[in-house]
Computed example of a mutant assay.
Amino acid sequence: MNKASNPFFEFIQVNREELINKWTDRMKDLDDQKNLTVISDKLYTNICNEYFNIVLTNVNSLGEEVTSKIEYFSQKIVQLGWSLKYISTGLSELNKILFEMMTVNNTEEEKMNLVWAFDKWIAPINSEVLHQYASSWERTVSLQKIALQELSAPLIPVFDNITVMPLVGTIDTERAKRIMENILQGVVKHRAEVVLIDITGVPVVDTMVAHHIIQASEAVRLVGAKCLLVGIRPEIAQTIVNLGIDLSQVITKNSLQKGIESALEMTNRQIVSMEE
């Protein structure tokens, strides 16, 4: 389909500003209040305008240039945090606006011809937008997951031969495996003699979590270092007792400060105050 035979091309060019204004208003109506407070009217207009640039570029088929523009466009709306449902509904609203404006005085036959032309020209673009959106979202989520995994169990050197692993949030089997890997790699990398596992930020310590902690402590011992479990709050201590969890083989302290003091003693050092 070329420009001359395309009923939408000239109409969109002539009525572009009105279409964008109406579509922007519909998109804002569809959006929730959270986005409305952080997204300006100009940004909505820019997104709608960019979409029409793609539509007017696509004359015959989805070539490399159009696909590239759609990919960039999809990445942008993913970064805005717009959901797939919101984008899909927004594109449907544009379809309604376009047909409402184009078929005010049309016969049923003329309307059907427009439907056919729409399927040939704009529908493939919308389909590709949704496809690229889904792909971009999957890539984003995958990268975020990798970043969170890397940050979920860091081993931090605080003194020579002393490292701390602060844990925050729940611990499942997959995360426990990463904790074990990071501890063993970190002990070797930092030549740690003492490792402190800080569970201050772990909301629940059940039998599974305790089992993973005991395993980590044993693994540290096998590579020639000592392990301290710190940050045991009163409610966590009560849970451990009630569940009958045996942590007798693990050195425990109620705070990170106490743990560091013990770790310094284990490495023949201590904290002393300097009098002026």
Score class of each variant (00 low, 15 high):
N2Y: 15
N2M: 09
K3F: 02
A4H: 14
F8E: 12
E10P: 04
I12S: 09
V14F: 03
N15V: 03
N15Y: 05
R16M: 13
E18H: 08
L19G: 12
I20R: 09
N21W: 06
W23N: 01
T24Q: 12
R26L: 10
L30V: 08
D32R: 11
D32E: 05
Q33G: 00
Q33E: 11
Q33A: 01
N35C: 14
L36V: 09
V38T: 13
S40K: 12
S40A: 01
S40V: 04
T45I: 10
T45G: 01
N46D: 07
Y51L: 15
Y51F: 15
N53W: 06
I54R: 00
L56V: 14
T57Y: 09
N58I: 11
N58Q: 15
N60H: 11
N60Q: 07
G63W: 12
K69N: 09
Y72C: 05
S74W: 11
Q75T: 06
Q75M: 15
W82R: 06
S83H: 01
I87G: 07
I87D: 12
S88V: 03
L91I: 02
E93Y: 09
K96P: 05
I97N: 12
I97K: 06
M101S: 03
M102P: 00
M102C: 08
N105M: 03
T107V: 04
K111C: 10
A117L: 02
A117G: 04
F118V: 00
D119K: 12
K120R: 07
I122L: 15
S127I: 12
E128Q: 12
V129G: 04
L130N: 06
H131E: 15
H131S: 07
Y133W: 15
S142L: 03
S142K: 11
Q144M: 00
K145W: 01
L148S: 14
L151M: 15
L151A: 11
P154S: 13
P157W: 03
F159M: 05
F159R: 07
D160K: 03
D160I: 01
T163W: 03
V164R: 09
L167C: 13
G169M: 02
T173E: 14
R175A: 09
R178P: 08
I179R: 07
E181P: 06
N182R: 07
I183A: 15
V188Q: 02
H190F: 02
R191V: 02
R191G: 12
A192N: 11
V194T: 06
V194G: 00
D198A: 04
D198F: 08
T200C: 01
G201W: 12
V202T: 05
V205E: 09
H212D: 09
I213W: 01
I213K: 05
S217I: 00
A219W: 04
V220K: 01
K226V: 08
C227S: 14
I232P: 11
R233H: 08
P234C: 07
E235I: 13
Q238D: 05
I240S: 04
N242K: 15
L243S: 00
Q249P: 02
V250Q: 00
S255G: 04
Q257A: 07
I260W: 00
L264Y: 08
E265F: 07
E265D: 01
T267R: 07
N268E: 03
V272S: 06
S273G: 01
M274Y: 15
E276A: 05
E276Y: 14
